[in-house]
Write a protein that binds this DNA or RNA. Sequence first.
DNA 1: TGCGCACGCTTGGTATATATAGCGCTGGTC
DNA 2: GACCAGCGCTATATATACCAAGCGTGCGCA
Lengths: 142, 142
Amino acid sequence: MLANMDENDERWQALGDFIRAQRQLRDLSLRQLASLAKVSNPYLSQLERGMYRPSVDVLKNIAAGLRMSTETMLVQAGLLAEPGDVVALDVEGAVRLDPHLTTAQKEALLGVYRGFVGHPAPPPTRRPKAASKPRVNRTSSH
Amino acid sequence: MLANMDENDERWQALGDFIRAQRQLRDLSLRQLASLAKVSNPYLSQLERGMYRPSVDVLKNIAAGLRMSTETMLVQAGLLAEPGDVVALDVEGAVRLDPHLTTAQKEALLGVYRGFVGHPAPPPTRRPKAASKPRVNRTSSH
DNA sequence: TGCGCACGCTTGGTATATATAGCGCTGGTC
DNA sequence: GACCAGCGCTATATATACCAAGCGTGCGCA
């Protein structure tokens, strides 16, 4: 589904190498780290050899088992930019995370911002209005 | 696998709500965002209702489709623990660095922002704990 | 020499993330 | 009215993340 899947594959492989190196650096056996990270040891083995792409919680647990921060792990996984680059964070995120603003203020500010930059790709559909639909049967009534 | 799954469940649910809110704020239909995020529309629908926990690349793609950074998304998902650590961000800097805005727009936006937070002469939103430079050695620096 | 034991790995299964096809609804256009 | 286009959602199928059991090897120890 993703176009550059091969690139990603190599990324996961590199992540596996990184995990294995870190584990061995700490003199941990596969089973030990697996136990710390709350995953099975075969799975960890396969992860280290780049056979699977772990989910975020697994990454988080492994990072915890290796006593490193989750971000470091994610950066290694190539899923996050380097922390230094994070400064180039989007306005959206910055506003949303700003503790000085109330929720209403955030929405207002973001409204202005969006007005400035415009919508990404509102393709000329025949009916531009859609959001006024009330929440219908949330739990299926079948 | 994880001990406190219920807690996490609520987290994913909250993430779904967040995604839906953001999508509707931008007047995007499910299918539009799904297409932008390169996932199927039923899956996105189920994500928004907290029925599944998306993988990282899906999160990344959705964040891209919503024009926000992956970090923001992950923080919202509660997967990146300390925002203070990751985001050395301030609204000022984010706005100044945003390439989508003209200078006049930046000034206008910052004017609104300063009006909200109250202080006209903003002391740079320095985070006192910016010392955590991780030892991530970009070994596989392709 | 054999026995236990820890190591990393293979095998085969289950759970769940993600896709495809299609339903019922609502609101425009003729 | 009929009809089409878009909406969100359900139902079902497939891919894959993840686990439990077990294998072969090497090493210390009687």
